[in-house]
Nucleic acid binder design. Structure first.
Lengths: 216, 216
DNA sequence: CGTCACATTGAACCTCTTCAAGCGCCGTGG
DNA sequence: CCACGGCGCTTGAAGAGGTTCAATGTGACG
């Protein structure tokens, strides 16, 4: 079903050690596929044959827990690559939190058939970056509810495009499952931050940073 | 300084996808160095030129927080390799929790000068394994105190050699900083598990699993 | 216009933290 | 050799913070 993509390969570019060439290579050997809200991208236990790059939208990576609850490990936004960290089969699941465009790339195509050195290193760097983000998130889970929410907002600001406004592409449940809180606590904390004039919420999915310094 | 080791290569084994060849290579190009209790192995911000493999003992990897407190991200035991996940400089610190023997290996030696494909992949697998453990730990931090402690015990059993007995190579403070609890809560939880006949504590650093099924 | 999913707000409960004291081990020094 | 002092572990009681249960509010869509 996806055989014709295979032949679209890099003609004359030699593999440099920078990441730029590979990022563009990913763009060239794949087409964006639309995913609906809450649509499954891959599930725990499935063969990890593909990598994914987000064109637009947002994805949650999570462990499914018993009876519908889940622990969200990470959010991926436009430009992010995910699906790493699996040897053979995926150990986590992932779904779109909002309608998204996502590029799907076969691992084997990326690696070349024999295994390309520079691409290996690139994947290693990406995985190492994931590791650092997972560790940072560990830190966040130790603090109180307010600090977790603030940390989340700062992460969104840092990774988003805008400086003083955040477009939340995920639900309160997603945020709560990410921060290890209940949706009630998340909502209450938002309200408290608004009362403290640190932020304002024109709508539940739009957050304006009124006093960015108050988030420290 | 490392020229003569290079020729010590596996004679007739072709670079298979298993790790065995590289693990033994690590053992051959390094000698164990003794570290004292609480001795610093590397600190946040230092150049990440080396990898480390534990011969015996235990190491804590952690983020230093303000005023002496710290978040322990992982423990490394005999056989484990650590120092991964850094591009250029270490983002975490690490210290021995107990007198330990640790092999120190230059990254560049491992990688060969041009970059060895299979070794790249091996490091990628190790980093991916670290990522999975960091994510598992994330999960653990969401549960209640008793589940965190039980999860810790199960991890120690799984990674240790013995089946029904655990030799704790780290202090209560290390455990508490790892689980995001206070030392009081850790101690209380141990006592409660002992009262419930799930474990027994002949000494503070020795735990006997009396009822392994009770840890589920 | 009604329904449904999601977000917000309130009050009681529960768990973990905090503060404080007591215990046991081991090394040092008289 | 014994006494002392320090460090780490244990245990107890009060307090804070988050969860739980419950009700209300609000926007999207048929």
């Amino acid at each position: 079903m996806k055989s014709k993509r295979q032949k679209t390969r890099q003609p004359s570019r030699r593999p440099s050690s920078t990441s730029a060439a590979y990022v563009s290579a990913i763009d060239q050997i794949s087409a964006p596929i639309p995913y609906a809200r809450n649509e499954v991208i891959f599930s725990q236990g499935e063969p990890a044959d593909y990598l994914y790059k987000i064109e637009s939208g947002c994805v949650r990576a999570f462990y499914p827990l018993d009876k519908g609850s889940r622990q969200v490990l990470a959010f991926y936004l436009a430009g992010d690559i995910f699906g790493l960290g699996a040897h053979d089969r995926h150990t986590i699941s992932s779904e779109a939190t909002t309608p998204s465009l996502i590029r799907v790339i076969r691992r084997k195509v990326l690696m070349g058939y024999g295994g390309d050195v520079a691409m290996s290193r690139h994947l290693l760097q990406l995985t190492a970056a994931e590791l650092r983000r997972a560790r940072d998130h560990n830190l966040r889970l130790l603090k109180g509810a307010q600090d977790r929410v603030i940390g989340f907002l700062r992460e969104m600001v840092q990774r988003g495009q805008t400086q003083d406004e955040i477009e939340l592409l995920m639900s309160r449940r997603d945020i709560a499952d990410y921060l290890g809180l209940t949706i009630e606590t998340v909502s209450r904390t938002f309200s408290r931050l608004e009362a403290a004039a640190a932020i304002s919420l024109p709508s539940p999915w739009r957050i304006v940073l009124r006093d960015p310094s108050a988030l420290n």
